[in-house]
């Protein structure tokens, strides 16, 4: 436990001081991108990793959040902070409207419904050109001072990401999280022991909608220009791979997955060309070989190196007592 909190402290310090030791602006941009993605993935993790609802359409919610922010903070000249709140609220409402019918459906139907939403949002953006700029896209304003510099913006996104992490951690470690895991592992049993299955799923889904909206707002501001092509369906796959590779039912795993997978194609150029093919391959390999997540690999290796000693408690038969019991007169 001590080791864990020490590691957490070190990572927190490194993240907080990043603007002072980052080599260039690009690394800072990358770190902000990771944090922005994590805002969404942290919320989605509760839905996918804990509750086991495979939502493959969160990119649609991200797009709604991004466009809401771009329209409100741009042409409508609303204060960016309010626009972020509006993005989160609207996406939460959207999540509620989407979740009400679709969360009642079994696994594959739910996945298809969320995928359809991702496609519908894209269609809607293209259809309402006068509002969203259509295929040309929209310029997104940046935040006012002190968040207008790369370092300031990085702190803003980092703070939001930390907030989301704290929220999900609070949910995950209490009774709520246990209930969600029970729903994932066996919904019938969960219902039998009194977990309000549908309501729990809906609440978590709405929460993930809110985080997706906030993530969309900061993501759009980070990109500074958004088009419908920014929100391709494959981005959903990327979110998914981050969670699955980190391991379901964990927060640290997906966080590490997000960091590595966001940074990897940027640092290794050939991977960027393959792009989504690489994510697909990664997902397939993880699902086939280690469905518990990459963390499981390290556990197995650690077990090989240092086998856990299993204490054997020998049970000696108490023969005297047995004889007496058998010889007792009936």
């Amino acid at each position: 436990m001590k080791k864990k909190s020490a590691a957490l402290l070190v990572v927190g310090l490194l993240a907080a001081t990043l603007p002072f030791w980052a080599a260039d602006q690009y690394q800072l941009h990358l770190a902000a991108l990771i944090a922005a993605f994590w805002i969404l993935i942290g919320g989605l993790n509760l839905v996918v990793g804990y509750t086991g609802q495979l939502s493959i359409g969160h990119v649609g919610l991200l797009a709604v959040g991004a466009y809401t922010f771009a329209i409100l903070a741009g042409p409508e000249e609303v204060h960016p902070a309010l626009a972020v709140l509006a993005s989160g609220g609207l996406c939460g409402l959207f999540g509620l409207l989407l979740g009400l019918p679709s969360l009642r459906l079994p696994g594959f139907y739910f996945a298809m419904a969320t995928m359809a939403v991702a496609l519908i949002v894209g269609e809607f953006i293209m259809a309402n050109g006068d509002l969203t700029g259509g295929g040309i896209g929209l310029a997104v304003p940046s935040f006012p001072a002190p968040f207008d510099s790369p370092a300031g913006f990085y702190y803003l996104v980092l703070g939001l990401a930390a907030l989301v992490t704290w929220c999900t951690w609070n949910v995950a470690r209490r009774m709520w999280g246990r209930g969600l895991i029970a729903i994932r592992d066996n919904p019938v049993t969960a219902q039998a022991v009194g977990v309000p299955v549908f309501r729990a799923k809906l609440k978590v889904f709405v929460f993930s909608g809110i985080t997706a909206g906030v993530a969309g707002a900061v993501f759009a501001s980070l990109q500074s220009y958004i088009t419908p092509d920014t929100f391709v369906f494959e981005l959903s796959l990327f979110f998914f791979v981050c969670i699955i590779i980190g391991g379901r039912g964990s927060i640290v795993g997906p966080l590490i997955g997000t960091m590595i997978l966001t940074a990897l194609p940027e640092l290794v150029a050939p991977l960027a060309k393959l792009g989504n093919f690489f994510y697909g391959l990664l997902l397939l390999v993880v699902v086939l070989l280690v469905p518990e997540g990459i963390g499981r690999v390290f556990e197995v290796i650690a077990e090989r190196l240092r086998p856990r000693r299993i204490e054997s408690i020998p049970v000696r038969p108490d023969l005297d007592r047995l004889t007496r019991a058998l010889q007792r007169p009936r």
Binding site: G52, L54, I56, G107, F108, A111, E234, L237, F240, I244, L274, G275, N276, F277, Y279, G280, L281, L282, L283, L284, V287, L288, P291
Partner: peptide
Amino acid sequence: RSDEHLWLLSTLALATMVQQ
């Protein structure tokens, strides 16, 4: 493995790979 969700992920991964 008899986990009902995994085939959704594996076929999704394969589909993406083929499409890309």
